[in-house]
């Protein structure tokens, strides 16, 4: 159910502008890996390259290799849509489909996969909403619009929608940055539960959050404005936050960023 992601010398570009340079990194299955670093360091771009969402932006492209359990996701004959079905994504801003009910939002991905049988959909919707710790809050109003939920509930709805298609990996791009502390805590608890089944990668600006939820932390930074982002150090979260090998990591962690 959970797979390993490995990148080899991965660079990301927007047209002629290079955003990420030469990142080689392995994300172990059933673990939470956090990407931290200052704004513009390319961590979100790098994350989006892991499920081929980077190329959705016009003129965006990558160089290098991304392996999902030794299979090149950018290889010939590999479809981007199939990759994204296997590697799900949760975005910064909760984005349930506005015209759909709670139920239809969760079922949207399954319907895209051709599942139409009511009993099968019902089971998957309940399982996914339970998996996202949202079932008890919404079970009595599954046919109400998803947009009627609070921000935190909407984000958990989006997580339910993402896990409904049973991906191998779940990528989260600053999933709590638009949420209040209580909702953030709910999502963090959820991430802890989800890592038993999925490989999780989370981009966060919140270092406490990285320390709380992740097993491994990768620190990205850039030399200056206009420079591409680079991976500086990746290690056990415990080690990164107590005894990092790189001076630049330590400076960032302790707030002496420069």
């Amino acid at each position: 159910m959970a797979k390993r992601i490995e990148t080899v010398d991965l660079s990301c570009y927007y047209g002629s502008m290079q955003a990420v340079e030469g990142v080689s990194l392995t994300v172990e299955p059933k673990s939470v890996t956090a990407f931290i670093g200052p704004s513009g360091c390319g961590k979100s771009t790098f994350l989006r390259a892991l499920n081929r969402m980077h190329e959705v932006i016009p003129n965006a492209r990558i160089e290098g290799t991304v392996l999902l359990d030794d299979e090149d996701i950018y290889g010939p004959g590999i479809e981007a849509a199939a990759v994204r079905r296997t590697i799900g994504m949760v975005f910064q801003k909760p984005n349930p489909f506005p015209t759909m009910s709670i139920y239809d939002n969760v079922a949207a991905g399954l319907k895209l996969n051709g599942i139409r049988k009511k009993s099968e959909l019902d089971g998957a919707v309940e399982r996914s909403l339970r998996g996202a710790n949202l079932w008890d809050e919404v079970k009595s109003r599954l046919n109400k619009p998803g947009m009627g939920l609070s921000g935190g509930q909407q984000q958990r709805l989006c997580i339910a929608r993402a896990i409904a298609v049973e991906p191998q990996v779940l990528l989260m791009d600053e999933p709590c940055s638009a949420l209040d502390p209580i909702s953030t805590l709910a999502i963090e608890d959820l991430i802890n539960e989800l890592k038993d089944r999925y490989t999780i990668v989370i981009v966060t600006h919140n270092m406490q959050q990285a320390a709380r939820v992740s097993d491994v932390t990768a620190f990205f930074t850039l030399k200056g404005p206009g420079e591409p982002g680079r991976l500086i150090e990746v290690d056990a979260t415990q080690k990164i936050f107590t005894n990092p090998s790189e001076k630049r990591t330590e400076d960032y962690i302790t707030g002496r960023f420069g």
Partner: peptide, 20 residues
């Protein structure tokens, strides 16, 4: 962000249009 949501679920371009 709605369109990206559909694409991230594995929708093709036409499926994305139909969904989002």
């Amino acid at each position: 962000v709605q369109k990206e949501a559909a694409l991230a679920l594995g929708a093709t371009r036409w499926e994305m249009i139909r969904t989002a």
